[in-house]
């Protein structure tokens, strides 16, 4: 069971046990992590689950699809480490993953 950590914009940490196969967004929503809206429910269609993946994990979370790139293009405060949490599927390989939350979702 991989562990993941969400760090809110104000520094509050949420260390969670997650089931492999779930998306990073689903884990946040199931544990009521504030700051992830996930309006579209995981369809890569709204960009309200924007997170910053910790640099050391960026190579392991998989590549962005064209759609994710398009959606992130219209999000606020986008950086190189920006991802949509609904597009990252958890596995044993991602045990220890750290994701920071932006100040707000647009």
């Amino acid at each position: 069971m991989p562990k993941v950590t969400f760090i809110e914009h104000n520094g509050t940490r949420h260390e969670l046990d997650a089931d492999s196969g779930l998306s990073l967004m689903e884990v946040a929503v199931a544990n009521s992590v504030p700051g992830i809206d996930a309006d579209c429910g995981g369809a890569c269609a709204c960009a309200t689950c924007h997170v910053y993946v910790d640099e050391s994990w960026l190579g392991k979370v998989g590549d962005k699809t064209d759609m994710e790139t398009s959606m992130l293009d219209f999000a606020e405060g986008v950086q190189d480490s920006s991802r949509l949490a609904c597009q990252i599927t958890l596995s044993a390989e991602l045990d220890g993953l750290i994701a920071q939350l932006p100040e707000s979702q647009h």
Partner: peptide
């Protein structure tokens, strides 16, 4: 409640 289509989706 936020899971509605009123704002549309996609780009």
């Amino acid at each position: 409640a936020r899971h509605h289509v009123s704002f549309g989706f996609g780009i």
